[in-house]
Amino acid sequence: MSLTVRLPKFVKMVVSALTIVALFLFTQAPNASATINYGEEVSAVAKNYVDSQYKWGGTSPKGFDASGFTQYVYKNAATKMNIPRTSALQYKTGASVKQSELQSGDLVFYATGEKGKVSFVGIYNGDGTFTGVTMSGVKVVKMSDKYWKERYIGAKRIIE
């Protein structure tokens, strides 16, 4: 013989709802965490401006020069960093990095004018290229190209 208790639908709904609430309250959900690789993000932001125009002294998407570009990207990327205006002053910022240890977002420096004197900066992309402002605008450039290889001075990591 079986004993059956008949509950009204309303009571069944309340019991079901309380059971669901209890599950949410007394069970732990896995912690969601997201980290951002600031160097990769800086590199990605820089690439968004490929084909922007070159402008001597330019510091905005209307026209950039090399250091105006790096300054703009760092300020407008997730880093929100204020870096110096000129490539020579940017070269005095951060920690020196060996070329073999470059990471995305590192600044790479070149002597495009007077030999041995910093006059150009770009943002390393992590694949042997950098994004920088040439006379024909913002481009992704291979560091192994003869022109750039011969003029390389060094690199700095300004993201901690």
Score class of each variant (00 low, 15 high):
residue 76 N to L: 00
residue 30 P to I: 02
residue 108 V to H: 04
residue 79 T to P: 09
residue 92 K to Y: 12
residue 54 Y to M: 06
residue 156 K to L: 08
residue 6 R to G: 00
residue 26 F to D: 01
residue 94 G to D: 11
residue 79 T to Q: 06
residue 114 E to A: 07
residue 72 Y to H: 10
residue 139 K to V: 05
residue 78 A to C: 00
residue 129 T to R: 11
residue 115 K to S: 13
residue 138 V to H: 11
residue 87 S to T: 04
residue 62 K to N: 15
residue 66 A to M: 02
residue 104 S to M: 06
residue 67 S to G: 05
residue 87 S to K: 08
residue 66 A to T: 01
residue 150 E to Y: 09
residue 129 T to K: 09
residue 125 N to K: 06
residue 38 Y to H: 02
residue 59 T to A: 14
residue 14 V to G: 02
residue 67 S to K: 01
residue 18 L to R: 01
residue 119 S to P: 05
residue 74 Y to K: 04
residue 23 L to T: 04
residue 14 V to D: 03
residue 78 A to L: 09
residue 16 S to G: 15
residue 118 V to P: 04
residue 158 I to R: 00
residue 22 A to K: 00
residue 83 I to R: 07
residue 5 V to M: 14
residue 143 M to G: 13
residue 107 L to I: 02
residue 82 N to D: 15
residue 147 Y to P: 11
residue 57 G to A: 14
residue 84 P to K: 08
residue 61 P to T: 01
residue 1 M to G: 15
residue 107 L to N: 00
residue 18 L to A: 08
residue 99 Q to W: 11
residue 24 F to G: 00
residue 61 P to N: 05
residue 64 F to G: 01
residue 59 T to Y: 12
residue 107 L to V: 00
residue 72 Y to P: 02
residue 65 D to W: 09
residue 44 A to G: 02
residue 116 G to A: 07
residue 159 I to M: 13
residue 67 S to H: 10
residue 17 A to T: 14
residue 128 G to H: 07
residue 121 V to R: 08
residue 148 W to V: 02
residue 54 Y to L: 03
residue 17 A to I: 14
residue 132 G to N: 09
residue 98 K to A: 15
residue 78 A to R: 10
residue 152 Y to N: 06
residue 59 T to L: 11
residue 68 G to A: 12
residue 27 T to L: 14
residue 85 R to T: 05
residue 103 Q to R: 03
residue 86 T to V: 01
residue 35 T to V: 10
residue 52 S to F: 02
residue 1 M to C: 11
residue 138 V to Y: 12
residue 55 K to E: 10
residue 123 I to H: 06
residue 24 F to M: 04
residue 125 N to G: 11
residue 18 L to C: 13
residue 150 E to I: 00
residue 157 R to A: 03
residue 89 L to D: 15
residue 37 N to W: 05
residue 23 L to G: 04
residue 28 Q to E: 12
residue 13 M to S: 12
residue 26 F to A: 01
residue 109 F to P: 03
residue 54 Y to T: 00
residue 5 V to T: 12
residue 74 Y to R: 08
residue 60 S to C: 12
residue 5 V to F: 15
residue 56 W to V: 00
residue 98 K to S: 15
residue 130 F to K: 14
residue 144 S to H: 07
residue 113 G to Y: 13
residue 157 R to H: 06
residue 21 V to C: 05
residue 39 G to N: 07
residue 140 V to E: 15
residue 126 G to I: 05
residue 125 N to R: 03
residue 108 V to I: 07
residue 93 T to A: 12
residue 39 G to H: 11
residue 96 S to Q: 10
residue 17 A to F: 15
residue 89 L to Q: 15
residue 74 Y to L: 12
residue 19 T to Q: 07
residue 124 Y to W: 08
residue 42 V to Q: 11
residue 160 E to L: 14
residue 24 F to E: 01
residue 41 E to M: 10
residue 136 S to I: 05
